[in-house]
């Protein structure tokens, strides 16, 4: 059993190429997904807080464009 698991990981000697390929693909795709998800969450949060906050009166307003 352990023999075939070891054989699987060895990938016929090509492990050095196969696993980084699969790994890199996974990292990049998951990373992009996570980053996009985070961006959406953060934008939604900002919108929520803008809608919840009352119109500023005499408070410091940010002059920076979006």
């Amino acid at each position: 059993m352990t023999d075939s698991i070891a054989a699987f990981f060895a990938m016929g000697g090509y492990a050095f190429y196969v696993w980084p390929s699969l790994g890199l693909t996974a990292v990049v795709m998951v990373g992009l997904l996570w980053s996009s998800w985070r961006g959406l969450r953060s934008a939604e949060g900002t919108l929520e807080s803008l809608r919840a906050a009352p119109t500023p009166q005499g408070t410091e307003a940010s002059g920076r464009p979006e």
Partner: peptide, 8 residues
């Protein structure tokens, strides 16, 4: 021909 490297 390519053995296990074809997994890529």
């Amino acid at each position: 021909q390519q053995g296990e490297s074809v997994r890529i």
